[in-house]
Nucleic acid binder design. Structure first.
Lengths: 225, 225
DNA sequence: ACTTGGGATATCGTAGACGATCTCATTCCT
DNA sequence: AGGAATGAGATCGTCTACGATATCCCAAGT
């Protein structure tokens, strides 16, 4: 067969309309375009993409299971509001999971891991596009958990973090938020290099919980709706 | 207003067709009626409920986000298969979360909690309807975490457990599975009564991981599909 | 000024339909 | 006998349409 198969797309994996809309809405919630409490008008989204509202509803049903939107019968979906106590709890679950992941990972870390993590630190530090900070932050964190060989654990961490994505972005933009994160990332990485599981876990826990603290101190008062 | 409002239903909360179908399919996966790898024919489910396939698809989209089914474009949804390594990982995440929950809960446990937990132990021990064992098992476990006042943590545990529900039911029906669980539940409860957080967490971790072991030892070999 | 009622419009949840894609069975060719 | 081609039927993804429900605005009544 004389075709250049390197350029061939697996059409079975081509995104459906509902996949595309799912990503769009999820990103819109994450970047704050869609604020908490805001209704998502199905017909409006459908018009935006020039499709019927069926794939919009399907995307929203998925987002409901992810905890990002909430359906009210005959009224449609609104972006979830997360109370401050619940934000704290989500950070806490994240801290529990991530400290365990890093402990499982450290014994298996390689020099390649350290170099990769450092590259993510550097990329994070030098990035000026605010929209990329959160992604690089995640890249750094997840790089540290890879050697645990625990994809389900990492996936669970990811799904918990996705609940917080919109707030994490806010926190990183706070004054000193990024510098603090950068400094703490490097400290965590040093503890990993030293194979000090307890120290790394401690630093990581403190890193996550102080990000939570900082965020909660700067959250605007909840607007009544 | 002279009406007896105790009997009034909040119609805004009445389940949609898609809600009802969601529950049906989720339960069918949990009780083994729908086996892993099995395709879920949208038209068949729609015919079963005498509805169009739109609410069926919506339910399936939600179940996809819950990890119970997987969509393949133009081929529909199949029940997820979980490999043995992944089962082990899911149990592990469960153990991490539940041991933390019980540690956070113990300092706040009341006599009422202990009595309730014991009642669930007794109910579990005497129940002969296999279909109820798993629910009572969850009731016991979640009762122990209530006093932690961490609804997000408990919800996360629940969602991880839901991934395993179909396998947990299998494990409880294994010879001695239920007796072992009952004995270990009571030991965990005793450690809670004694306010021994470390002991309770240890027993709980061992309880969960040995259930995992037992299950993996008895899983039928994966059938190729 | 405030409350109630009614009509118009917006939005939701889902039906039946349709084109695209997949799967299976049959036939033909080597 | 095995492989390829073709057609029919099954299934998927989404369309348009419709009835149900919610929301908003205006007018009338107190």
């Amino acid at each position: 067969m004389p075709f250049n198969t390197a350029q061939v797309t697996n059409l079975g994996k081509a995104p459906t309309a509902s996949d595309i809309i799912l990503k769009f809405i999820r990103d819109s919630i994450a970047d704050g375009s869609l604020d908490e409490g805001e209704p998502i008008r199905q017909d409006d989204v459908a018009r935006l993409f020039n499709v019927s509202k069926i794939p919009v509803r399907e995307a929203l049903k998925r987002l409901e299971a992810e905890g990002l939107v909430e359906f009210h019968r005959n009224k449609g979906a609104i972006v979830t509001s997360v109370s401050e106590p619940e934000i704290a709890q989500i950070f806490e679950v994240r801290a529990i999971l991530e400290t365990n992941a890093i402990k499982l990972s450290i014994p298996h870390m390689t020099e390649e891991t350290f170099e990769k993590a450092l590259a993510y630190c550097d990329a994070f530090a030098k990035e000026t596009d605010v929209a990329r900070w959160s992604e690089l932050n995640w890249r750094f964190h997840s790089c540290l958990y890879e050697d645990a060989q625990r994809p389900f654990l990492v996936r669970t961490i990811r799904s918990v973090n996705d609940r917080l994505e919109r707030y994490l972005r806010v926190q990183l933009t706070l004054s000193h938020g990024k510098q603090t994160a950068d400094r703490e990332h490097r400290q965590i990485l040093e503890a990993c290099r030293a194979r000090d599981e307890e120290k790394a876990a401690e630093l990581l826990y403190a890193h996550i919980m102080s990000a939570c603290q900082s965020l909660l101190e700067h959250l605007p008062a909840k607007k009544p709706r």
